[in-house]
Amino acid sequence: MINYLKNIIKGFSTILVGMKVTFINLFRPNVTVQYPNVHPLVRAGSDKMPDNARNKLNVIIPKCTGCKSCEKACPVNCITIETTKVASIDTEKPLMEDGKKRVFWLSQFDIDFAKCCFCGLCTIACPTSAIVHSTDFEYSCYDRNELLVHFSPFNKEQVAEKKRILAEEVKQKAEKALADKQAAEKAAQEQNITDSKIKSSDDQTSANQNIQNNSN
């Protein structure tokens, strides 16, 4: 009986304690950050977000050498890179950001943010820090195809043009190589006529030696 009453009183008093806690909380200042009014960057008071903040990736194309390290590092294969060599006959002489000569055009550099898992491995793998996490996270969209972002500075025609220039150069080179080769062959033939007698006697001695080795 006493236990029963004790139980009741205990239950009642614990409820009162709980109500006191919630009542105090009712008047404590709230902790909410009102997002559209207060941007997280403003709240942080800087233009930086934590590493791995899961923001959109940004590719700084002038820095990118086209080495494809990021493509290999990506665990989900959501980066697609296609490079085109810069032709030496190209009138445009592109430079990297640090002043070196550019070797590859980035004819295609796509990141599919619908697949990317924002792990940041590509940013570590990149030798020139061309691919970085930005602070932009507000890019949800109504159509999934908008999440496939093309970073390449070229459109299709420009890419075709660059490819044509490269093909031309390759063709010129091939022609030149062919011409060189023919010239070389001609020279070699003249040489061959004078050397042929010595060569044939050498051949015979070596053949004799071979037969002896086999019988042994």
Partner: peptide, 13 residues
């Protein structure tokens, strides 16, 4: 509103 204030948040704003 009371629910939100007890949870230290704001409720409909």
């Amino acid at each position: 509103k009371i629910a939100s204030f007890i949870q230290l948040k704001l409720g409909p704003m």
